[in-house]
């Protein structure tokens, strides 16, 4: 089996690590992507609803939809945050050096936290504002 003479890492190990890192890279983007789509649906939804139906019909349905969407987004981000946390700080780790695998988990966790706060902030107007005006 060929491998790197300096590090002693085989091609197979290298490929496995690369595959794992690719998955982590995609997972890093997951929470901000949920935040972005939540933002898009809330604002576009409110704009379309108010343009088509306006205030006379009430905006209870719109507010409930935003609430539902927000709960779903927060659950998905929390789940992603938990997975990232496990990736960053597994039970059996005892070293202080972050390898690339753990580093990607750490970055994904921090992005999950900021995405969680972002989703809450985006949803707050629906909590206070009860009309299209």
């Amino acid at each position: 089996m060929k491998g790197d003479r300096v590090t002693g890492i085989s091609h197979r190990q290298d490929q496995d690590e690369f595959r794992g890192a690719t998955g982590s890279l995609f997972r890093i983007a997951l929470a901000p992507t949920i935040w972005a789509f939540h933002f898009l649906f809330c604002y576009a939804g409110a704009a379309v609803w108010c343009a088509k139906f306006g205030t006379p019909g009430g905006i209870a349905f719109l507010r409930l939809s935003i609430a539902g969407l927000t709960v779903l987004a927060l659950l998905a981000i929390a789940w992603q945050g938990w997975r990232s946390y496990r990736q960053w700080a597994p039970h059996d780790h005892d070293d202080h050096v972050e390898g690339s695998h753990r580093f990607l988990g750490h970055a994904a966790l921090l992005l999950s936290v900021i995405s969680f706060v972002g989703v809450v902030y985006v949803a707050m107007p629906a909590l206070f504002i009860g009309s299209c005006l």
């Binding site: 706060v117 902030y121 707050m124 909590l127 206070f128 504002i129 009860g130 009309s131």
Partner: peptide
């Protein structure tokens, strides 16, 4: 900062309906 900005956002949003 999350709590401070969130509180200011909530206060600002609570004012908006009275302005309309």
């Amino acid at each position: 900062p999350t709590v401070v900005v969130g509180s200011l956002l909530a206060w600002g949003l609570s004012i908006m309906p009275s302005q309309r």
